[in-house]
Amino acid sequence: MATFDEMILTHRLFMRGFPFSRYKIDPLPSSPLTKPLSQAKVALITTAGLYLEGQPKFDSSIKLGDSSFREIPRDILTQNLKEGHRSSAFDHRGVRDDKNLVLPLDRFREMVENGEIGSLNHRHFSFMGAIIAPGDLINKTAPQVADLLKSDNVDVAFLTPV
């Protein structure tokens, strides 16, 4: 289980001091699903810093964080994804071994085949979560992704951190 207490000292002090409450979601949006999951179109979002060969890597040199995102097409080979997350706060070995650990495209494909989910959107999105100043993300890149998903008629978004 992950808690602040098990992090190395510098990460722990940072997390304890960070004003997370400033970013409390308010007002809280609510859009409950009104159709069965077996008819819903699903998109996956991760902050694991995944990208594909040929796409620019996330920029780890931006001190306050890179708020950009990469588009991940549905039909790629999941294990062809690359992981370029700058954080040293997590163990990178798991995701390097199996990308489904953070972006479970293969699992969702299986659920579509089984009829448990209606369909998978033709694109998914990856961010690199180590963003200390999330202003640009809140005002620009997250709403951009939301609008793209809306234009794709996506019903459900499934999100994963690292």
Partner: peptide
């Protein structure tokens, strides 16, 4: 930070 960014 990732868990915060996911929420946002």
């Amino acid at each position: 930070m990732c868990n915060q960014i996911v929420g946002l």
